[in-house]
């Protein structure tokens, strides 16, 4: 298959699109790394690593701004249409979701810092941490897959990500149920339980952003807008398209 950025009479435009794509992937790599570090900070109960993650969120934001500026320049200079326009809009939306994922990683890191960074707060129960960790890893695996689908414009993989989103929401709900039971048993834990809820929510959102990115990939590859569409319909239609 021909490369999505290639073939323009103006070769420099090919280069600009390829560079933009590469930068989006770098941002994706950085964001995945942020989640990994936040999870490691949680595992190792390491507030200094958590602070590092919080500080590094700036790098994500800087990339976000840089990609925005470059996108505007490309649009102004090249007036992209059709495939080029869809490609650029897909990249732009992906960047927005990646930036949000960066924020979620920062929130998880902030939680770690709160738990172990100050002597005042009590360490949370390992049972609660287990759920946080589980959802974090699941969300990250979804993001990995979504970025992979983006990088290779692989609609089938994108469909897998969209399917996984139901699973992470389920995990989120059952974690909340366990938390509720836990608070009922010992009301002194309410303080950090609330923090755990916030962390769970942040991580569940990573799955949501991964699902969004997967949706953009399906739009770009098949021309179908699958946002706000029932999952089974998406799976049926997209897989039919691919056949």
């Amino acid at each position: 298959m021909k490369d999505i950025s290639d073939g323009h009479t103006v070769k420099r435009f090919d280069g600009e699109l390829a560079t933009h794509h590469q930068l989006v992937m770098e941002m994706g790599g950085l964001v995945v790394d942020q989640i990994n570090r936040a999870i490691r900070a949680l595992d190792e109960e390491d507030p200094s690593l958590a602070r590092e993650v919080i500080a590094r969120d700036r790098m994500v934001n800087d990339l976000d701004i840089r990609l925005d500026e470059e996108l505007i320049t490309i649009i102004a200079k090249r007036q992209p249409v059709a495939r080029d326009l869809r490609n650029l809009m897909t990249m732009d939306k992906t960047v927005t979701d990646l930036e949000r994922v960066g924020d979620e990683a920062r929130k998880l890191a902030a939680l770690v810092e709160e738990f172990w960074g100050s002597s005042s707060s009590a360490a949370p129960s390992p049972a609660l941490i287990h759920d946080v960790r589980g959802i974090a890893i699941y969300g990250k695996s979804m993001l990995d897959k979504a970025l992979d689908a983006f990088n290779n414009l692989d609609a089938e993989k994108a469909v897998e990500v969209i399917r996984q989103d139901e699973r992470i929401e389920e995990k989120f709900r059952s974690a909340l149920r366990r938390l509720a039971t836990y608070i009922l048993e010992d009301s002194r834990t309410v303080g950090y339980s609330i923090n755990v809820v916030l962390a769970l929510r942040a991580l569940e959102r990573i799955g949501g952003h991964a699902k969004n990115i997967a949706g953009y990939v399906i739009y770009l590859t098949t021309g179908r807008d699958v946002r706000h569409v029932d999952l089974n319909t998406i799976v049926d239609e997209v897989l039919k398209d691919l056949r």
Binding site: D3, I4, H21, E26, S141, D148, N151, N152, L153
Partner: peptide
Amino acid sequence: EEPSRTPSSTPPPAPRR
């Protein structure tokens, strides 16, 4: 975990029309 996605610099193939 499953092996990491290697951030690649090769742009993706053209989409199916």
